[in-house]
Amino acid sequence: MKSQTITTNTSPTPQIGDQLCFALYSTSLAMSKLYRKLLKKMGITYSQYLVLMVLWEQDQQTVNDIGQKLVLDSATLTPLLKRMEAQELITRVRAASDERQVIISLTKAGNDLRKAAADLPVSVLCATECSTDEVKNLKDQILALRASIMKTV
């Protein structure tokens, strides 16, 4: 394991502007605000958008499979899925082979949102004011950072 000290100021106490955690947190908040604005006209939240993207890639998945892909536990995911079912974006059906498993499937309305979401990546890219390559490199660095951190937690 690499051990290094990062010093950007001479203060004995941590300064918020020097913290990687705050840079990531505040950037995440900004990204959430951007998506909230973009998704408002679709009538869905960012969390719902993530579930829909997983189902657009492959329909009819278990709650556990969706949770693993989104790094969410079932206690967080289940209420979200119930709201999406009430909005008629998905259906939830117990698996015939194992009633402990719930299969999540897109409805026509959930599948139709795919067309409305098609322009979102371009809008987000424009908002970043980065090139496609810069965004890809940044995403790769963030994923590598997450993997490194997950080794220690």
Results as ranks from 00 to 15, higher is better:
Thr7Cys: 05
Thr76His: 14
Lys115Gln: 15
Val135Gly: 01
Met53Glu: 15
Lys37Leu: 13
Lys82Ala: 12
Leu120His: 05
Asp59Ala: 11
Ala23Val: 00
Glu129Phe: 00
Leu143His: 07
Ser11Glu: 15
Gly67Lys: 12
Thr8Ser: 09
Leu39Trp: 01
Arg92Trp: 07
Val153Gln: 08
Gln58Asp: 11
Asp98Asn: 15
Cys21Lys: 05
Leu72Lys: 13
Thr62Gly: 10
Gln19Cys: 13
Gly17Asn: 11
Thr78Leu: 12
Tyr49Lys: 02
Asp98Trp: 04
Lys151Trp: 01
Ser47Thr: 04
Leu70His: 04
Tyr35Cys: 07
Leu20Ile: 15
Asp133His: 07
Ser3Lys: 14
Lys2Arg: 13
Lys2Glu: 15
Thr45Val: 03
Lys151Leu: 12
Val135Gln: 00
Thr128Phe: 09
Ser26Lys: 12
Thr128Arg: 02
Val135Lys: 01
Arg94Ser: 12
Ala30Ser: 13
Ile44Thr: 01
Leu81Pro: 04
Met1Glu: 14
Thr76Ser: 15
Thr62Lys: 02
Lys37His: 10
Pro12Leu: 11
Ala144Asp: 13
Gln87Met: 11
Ala86Lys: 14
Glu85Ser: 12
Leu29Phe: 05
Ala23Thr: 04
Leu113Phe: 06
Leu89Lys: 04
Ala75Met: 07
Val51Phe: 03
Glu88Ser: 10
Ala147Arg: 06
Val102Arg: 01
Gly67Arg: 14
Leu50Lys: 09
Lys139Asp: 11
Met84Phe: 08
Ala30Cys: 06
Met31Arg: 03
Leu113Glu: 04
Gly67Trp: 14
Arg83Thr: 06
Leu106Thr: 08
Val63Ala: 06
Ser105Asn: 02
Lys115Arg: 12
Ile44Met: 09
Gly43Gln: 14
Gln60Trp: 00
Ser148Asn: 06
Lys33Ala: 09
Leu77Gln: 12
Ile104Pro: 07
Arg114Gly: 05
Ile16Gln: 13
Tyr35Pro: 05
Met1Gly: 15
Val51Ser: 09
Ile16Asp: 10
Pro79Lys: 10
Ser11Pro: 00
Glu88Pro: 08
Arg83Ala: 06
Leu55His: 14
Asp112Gln: 12
Leu145Gln: 09
Thr132Glu: 07
Cys126Met: 08
Asp73Ala: 05
Leu38Phe: 04
Lys40Cys: 11
Val51Ile: 13
Glu88Gly: 07
Gln19Pro: 05
Ala117Gln: 02
Val102Lys: 00
Ala147Pro: 09
Lys41Asn: 14
Lys151Ala: 10
Lys40Ser: 14
Thr78Arg: 09
Lys151Met: 13
Gly17Lys: 09
Arg114Val: 01
Ala127Phe: 06
Tyr25Phe: 13
Ala96Thr: 13
Gln87Phe: 07
Pro79Ile: 05
Thr91Cys: 01
Leu125Tyr: 01
Val153Leu: 03
Glu134Ile: 06
Val102Gly: 02
Leu70Ala: 03
Glu99Ser: 05
Cys130Asp: 05
Asp119Ile: 01
Met53Gln: 15
Cys130Gly: 02
Arg36Asp: 09
Thr45Met: 04
Lys115Trp: 12
Val71Glu: 11
Leu106Gln: 07
Ile103Phe: 03
Ala118Val: 06
Asn137Glu: 12
Leu39Glu: 11
Val51Met: 00
Thr107Leu: 03
Cys126Tyr: 03
Asp65Gln: 15
Val93Gly: 09
Arg146Asn: 03
Lys139Val: 11
Arg83Glu: 12
Ala118Asp: 13
Val153Tyr: 00
Trp56Val: 03
Leu120Asp: 08
Asp140Arg: 06
Ala144Lys: 04
Asp112Arg: 10
Ile16Lys: 08
Glu88Lys: 08
Ser123Pro: 02
